[in-house]
Amino acid sequence: MLYNDVILENFLHPENVGEIENADGAGEVGSISCGDVVSLTIRVENNIITNAKFTVFGGAAAIACASFITKTIRNRTPEEALSIASSGELDRALGGLPAARLKSAVFVCEAVQAAIKNYYDRNGIGYDPFDFALGCSICDGCEE
């Protein structure tokens, strides 16, 4: 099988699909040329992420990763969420993504970073810019 049962389950029954209205942070990464576009919105209350939702243009790996990560970062501080949101962690937690689909995990993690960075920017919270991926980190360049 291309995907294991954990990934298939997250793909077939994704949680937290949609957009949070008037979100506290929002981020969108990827492009149709790359194959994945991940959009993530978060609600932050008292420095805790109380809700996270996603929309995705992409394959099963992208949908599964997005569903999984939105569940994982709930009830965490943005700092904790940033440390959790790594493609290696996601790959491990989901029991191994096919190599060609690892980039979907990278996109999903970058969407988390983009949403948190947006939350920091809106609220004037300082951060080290090097903690955030500066643009698409996956390939050398694309048409977009």
Binding site: F11, L12, G35, D36, F57, G59, A60, A62, I63
Partner: peptide, 14 residues
């Protein structure tokens, strides 16, 4: 337009 066929194929497979 607006979707990735891998997801479509796996939904149909299901």
């Amino acid at each position: 337009e607006g979707l990735d066929s891998e997801s479509l194929i796996l939904l149909l497979d299901n």
